[in-house]
Design a protein around this nucleic acid. Structure first.
Lengths: 347, 347
DNA sequence: ATGAAAGCGCTAACAT
DNA sequence: ATGTTAGCGCTTTCAT
């Protein structure tokens, strides 16, 4: 009933050896000088009965699974969802499968996931590293498993990585606000020291410094409790911030910020201008539209998979080969939330 | 360098046979009457060197992978993302891993994914079935692979499934609108004949019928081209609909609808009241808040995994065992979009 | 109580 | 040109 066809069945039916079947199936017929006639018969019969080699056995034998482990921060965040989907698409076209998991930025969970992927014998890794996992990533590298970090990287480690020039992004956004006449620009970010967050902060402070304007930075602790994050932003805007514009360092901070601003009854951009680092469907849809620093998702995915597959297909001595590091530009998408309105009477 | 510890290394170091090590590791020490002393030494040494059995070899030998294939429509839709995450969490706690993929409602892709999961020898399936895959699902069942469908089901097949009572949901939503005084209520749904969509439509028509009010149903073709869907809804509202309220049959239809309504410059709920089947973060955040028929995601996930693990752990003769079918209630979350406003002068 | 050995299904070096 | 066969690392029966 559950009898799957085995390579043995194919071979014995065709009166050839299993080696012949295996070689034909793996495209090594020519180099093993198997006659075209036999090769054709094998292919035809395999097609006919729908024989599929057992991947488990194949992997055990070859040591290759053709699976890439994709470790992202949060697969339900549209940014990661999109990049993951694109990576999956490109990988699929080139014969690789993806298995993915979310770390929720939790180092312990990240370590478990990496261990789990190693147990599953993934051929390579694409990782959005949470903080404090240098040791685990280092261990992967030492095993020579091809690996690419993206979105952020681990400064101490000589790894491949693909990141976005966040500093340039926030610099441009700050300049845009300055051009619009905003002078008191605040920056709301997370309490994490991840490289990409520091980059984003740096672009902002630099742009202000060049104009001798003061920076106002709020670091919000990101927890699972949405309400607390919203409250923190709410209180910052109400009590601390003396500002006419805010740049949020991630799309979800912006979303929380929108909620806080709605609670405070402030109008965008009349009372407060807004720019989000990282775009989101919602920002297009929101009234007014929210200006965003968009990341090149397609390009990120393409670079990650290219580097990974190159290493997978041409294993080089990693003690010699330099790692590849890619820095991609952002694009400012200007919507109404950052455009200064003509003076309106306060009602 | 890449030398992983093998069961052989453990056995020879301890001067026992690999069988002993294997038995101890699989908790069969007692029943094989292995002395506690030996068992302890094995455990201690395994811990010390961090030996992890090769899952590939183990799976090849046992025929079990402890992996469940999760096939959803679109993992970036918050509904599916949440359910997938919950299923993953519960499965993990019980020793199972999840691999997931999105079908985009494409039957061809769905078939490929199912085939791929079978190649990976998943122990069980949780599937959100797209239309026209009765044959494939039938084949899975015939192989006795434990399977649960959810969100919708395939009417012809005697499978386990976990679905939501959409008819009750839209019925309650329609009643709510009627109570608010809306009389011309339209229903925007997709062009698909999937069971859950038909259920949702049924609740709406029934509620109207009971009041002898006419139904206005618009079936929109869902394509990847967002703009077209928005345009279709836009044109419906502008040209066809003679309505003062709309129920959208999915959360993404609502989002497209919001965009169309914004383009038309209509005010919610003054010009048009709105209810969405399936909730979304955005609906909480939007001004005004969008009333939604919320699905019990936690309960869906719990039921799916419970049924699946039960079958996985107590294999029963499927020709005898009846399949399990679960129907869960929805909950109407009333926000401003469906609350009638006091009469306002048209400016 | 413990060990030897037969596979799980496949690949690929080596024979013929 | 094609067949034989030794593993990949593990589980489990059977013999001791």
């Amino acid at each position: 009933m559950k009898k799957r066809t085995l390579i043995n069945d194919v071979a014995s039916h065709l009166q050839v050896s299993i080696a012949t079947v295996s070689l034909v199936l793996n495209g090594k017929a020519k180099q093993s000088r198997i006659s075209d006639a036999v090769a054709q018969r094998v292919l035809a019969y395999v097609e006919e009965v729908g024989y599929r080699p057992n991947q488990l056995a194949k992997s055990l034998r070859t040591g290759k699974t053709h699976v890439i482990g994709l470790v992202v921060e949060d697969i339900s965040n549209p940014f990661f969802a999109t990049v993951a989907w694109l990576i999956e698409k490109h990988a699929f076209e080139r014969g690789y499968r993806i298995i993915y998991c979310s770390t929720d930025n939790d180092p312990t969970k990240t370590k478990e996931l990496i261990a789990m992927f190693q147990e599953r014998h993934v051929d390579g890794f694409a990782i959005v590293p949470s903080e404090g996992i240098e040791k685990e990533v280092g261990a992967i590298l030492r095993e020579h498993t091809p690996t690419v970090l993206f979105d952020r990287h681990l400064p101490g480690l000589p790894t491949n990585y693909v990141v976005v020039d966040g500093a340039q992004g926030t610099y441009a956004a700050t300049e845009h606000l300055l051009e619009q006449g905003y002078r008191r620009i605040a920056f709301v970010t997370t309490d994490s020291a991840q490289t990409q967050m520091e980059d984003r902060l740096r672009g902002y402070t630099q742009a202000l410094q060049e104009q001798n304007l003061p920076a106002q930075v709020k670091r919000v602790a990101v927890t699972k409790e949405t309400e607390k994050v919203i409250a923190a932003i709410h209180d910052f805007i109400r009590d601390e911030a003396e500002c006419d514009a805010i740049i949020f360092a991630t799309n979800y901070l912006t979303i929380y910020g929108l909620e806080a601003i709605a609670q405070l009854g402030l109008r965008i951009p009349t009372d407060l201008a807004l720019i989000s680092y990282d775009d989101h469907d919602l920002f297009r849809l929101y009234t007014p539209g929210i200006t965003a620093i968009a990341q090149p998702v397609e390009s990120i995915a393409q670079n990650v998979i290219d580097i990974l597959l190159e290493e997978l297909q041409n294993p080089v001595d990693p003690t010699v080969a330099p790692s590849q590091q890619v820095l991609l530009p952002t694009k400012l998408i200007v919507r109404k939330s950052s455009i200064r309105q003509p003076e309106q009477p306060t009602m």
